[in-house]
Amino acid sequence: MTVSRRLWFSTGFMACCGLLAVGAYMQFVEELEPCPLCISQRLAILATGIIFLMAALHNKAHNIYAIAAAFSALLGAGISARHVWLQHLPPEQVPECSPGLEYVFQHFPLTDTIKLMLTGTGECSQIDGIFLGLTIPGWTFIAFVMLAAFSLASLRVYHASDTDQEKDI
């Protein structure tokens, strides 16, 4: 017996909500200021969650939603991988810190702001904590890979159940 597609994609949406809640907790309770790459990762989680929600609500074109959610999650994984890479650079290779993101949004062209948010700056190399040997971006990378795998697993699970239903006819 397989779970309904609505429940499957709702579960993915709830996972994204949980990840965003953890990020909000770290920012507002633990007072960890997010760097540009952290914000980009949150946006990728948000985009992935919205795709999961649309799939659950629309209940059509599941394969398209599954591929879109996996693509969004893999983009986020790429951003997380870049963040992990920056954290492991030798100090002399770390890029310079930028002005605050609010200042950048107000005074820099949009293309420069997007480039900054996707490539990171010196503050992105700061490690604010390690849990079980991984930094926050390391755990976020794992979460993105799991979200992508979860999304793509729906293609296999429901393709197999659709094939079984065809055999019954």
Rank of each mutant, 00 (worst) to 15 (best):
G120E: 03
N59P: 01
T48D: 11
T135L: 02
I64M: 13
F141M: 14
A56T: 12
A44C: 15
L89D: 12
M26L: 14
S98C: 02
K60R: 15
R82N: 15
L118K: 05
P109V: 11
A70N: 12
A81P: 08
G78D: 09
V94M: 06
S80L: 05
I51P: 01
P95R: 05
L134P: 00
L32T: 04
I114Q: 01
K115C: 02
G120R: 00
L43V: 00
W139T: 11
T119G: 00
Q106A: 15
L74N: 10
F131T: 05
I136L: 15
I64V: 15
A21G: 11
N63K: 11
V94R: 09
L116W: 13
E123S: 03
N63G: 10
N59M: 04
F105N: 04
L116K: 01
I127R: 14
A24W: 13
Q93V: 04
S40P: 03
T111W: 07
E31I: 01
I51R: 02
I64Y: 08
W85E: 14
H58F: 12
E33I: 08
T48F: 09
P34N: 03
Q41R: 00
T111M: 11
L32A: 04
L75K: 09
A70K: 06
C97N: 06
F108G: 03
G138M: 05
E31W: 05
N59F: 06
E31T: 02
E92F: 08
L53P: 08
A66F: 04
I136H: 13
L110V: 14
L134Y: 05
P109Q: 11
I64G: 07
I39H: 05
A55Y: 12
T140I: 08
E123P: 00
I45S: 00
L118S: 06
L57M: 12
V94A: 04
S72I: 08
L86A: 01
A81F: 09
Y65Q: 04
L110A: 12
T140W: 08
Q87P: 10
L134E: 08
G23D: 15
A73V: 06
Q106T: 06
H88V: 00
L118N: 07
L37G: 02
S98F: 01
G129F: 07
Q87I: 09
I64Q: 12
G23E: 14
G133E: 08
V84F: 10
M117I: 04
F52M: 10
E33Q: 10
L75N: 13
M26G: 01
G76N: 12
V22E: 10
K60W: 12
F105S: 01
A68C: 10
T140P: 05
G100T: 14
L110P: 11
Y103R: 04
